[in-house]
Design a binder for these strands. Structure first.
Lengths: 219, 219
DNA sequence: ATTACTATAGTGCGAGTAA
DNA sequence: TTTACTCGCACTATAGTAA
């Protein structure tokens, strides 16, 4: 709110700066936003300062591209709107962190899974999972995920091993966009695996035993 | 940008003011937005002044609900983000307005259609259609809609008459959210029917013969 | 053409506080 | 408890203009 430049960033994205450098003059940006050329110029400088955009400056104009963190900001914004308008329910699932044996990391680092995550989720997952021991009181909620449609990730066979179908649910953990992944053919478990674009433990300063709340959105 | 209170409006929606009155104190709103209680109070007053929210004031707080135009603002915002992040293509289809014989109005005012529009589109259509005679140069574009998946509206039989399946495509006309509807079993036509939540002719000051551009998004 | 500096006018924020 | 006023300060916008 205080220094909120989300609107400007969105306009830059609309003008083509989301996935590549776009020629955008401060005058044209100002016109789109209903502000002066000077104000638009300052907006760009501030976005660059906050590393939300990258710039290439020439003498006959500048080229602007939204940075990785800028993209994440816009995606988070999009997700919030989506949760508002799409008829989804949000399940608040609580649990305690624990360290797994690294099977999660092994699974999601399989190239065939990774390709699909990158395509079907809105982020490219960090290669590791956050293991959450679901609170007994929330087990009924967690189990409804078994019966809900999620984003389908197809299984495959690699080197004689079978990697089964998996489904993902978009979720939020402490304000961060993430995804809960569960096998389609579930065995009973109280372990919820969470993936995100970053290493959640360092990002959120979490350690074993910490209680977390994951807000899972189901269709 | 100048007097942009979209962020505040979105926060109010998140806090439950989208579809009903919600008890929201200025202090709590301020906390959510990272501003003071006083600033939040002013934000609310400005939103109310612009008729983007309705208020009920008591002595132990206020109840806030986002107005119809406020909802439309947020939906437009959502649509913009959606077009940015969902892998859609946008077809710019041009054509000239003309007056139909009112069959469009007759069709979309059928209750069975209306119910589905309200549920599956993001707006409740005004009971009338805008008839656009598609420019010959854009006919190939228009025809691709025939082969694209849209939002499916199921047909039905009423009083011995058959109303066929129809599909809708989210679209924008002069910055306004709208939808293009075409029968699933299409006969060849150069007439594109556009519906929206308002009477587009008055809303956009259009008259017969005017050229319009409709930006249709397909999956 | 551009971007972006300076100076000034205007708007917004928050502390204190009334109702 | 609330909401929302005034007022001082800071931030932001625009016009003019340099580079």
């Amino acid at each position: 709110m205080k220094g909120d430049h989300t609107g400007t960033l969105k306009q830059l994205a609309i003008m083509g700066a989301l996935n590549s450098f776009a020629d955008i003059t401060s005058a044209r940006l100002g016109e789109s936003l209903g502000i002066s050329q000077q104000a638009a110029s300052k907006e760009i400088l501030k976005l660059a300062e906050q590393k939300l955009v990258d710039r290439q400056i020439g003498q006959r104009g500048q080229r602007i591209m939204i940075s990785r963190s800028g993209q994440e900001l816009l995606k988070r914004e999009y997700l919030e709107y989506k949760l508002l308008f799409e008829p989804t329910r949000n399940l608040q699932i609580h649990g305690a962190l624990f360290s797994g044996l690294g099977e999660g990391r092994y699974y999601i680092s399989q190239p065939r899974y990774k390709q699909q995550f990158a395509k079907k989720l809105m982020f490219t997952p960090y290669e590791g999972t956050l293991n959450v021991r679901v609170a007994p009181a929330d087990m009924p909620l967690f189990e409804t995920l078994t019966f809900s449609e999620g984003i389908r990730i197809d299984g495959f066979v690699s080197k004689g091993r079978t990697f089964g179908d998996v489904k993902c649910f978009l979720a939020m953990i402490q304000g961060l966009e993430c995804s809960v992944i569960i096998p389609v053919r579930t065995h009973y478990t109280d372990v919820m695996e969470v993936i995100a674009s970053r290493h959640l433990r360092t990002q959120l300063s979490l350690k074993d035993g910490d209680m977390v709340e994951v807000s899972v959105s189901i269709a």
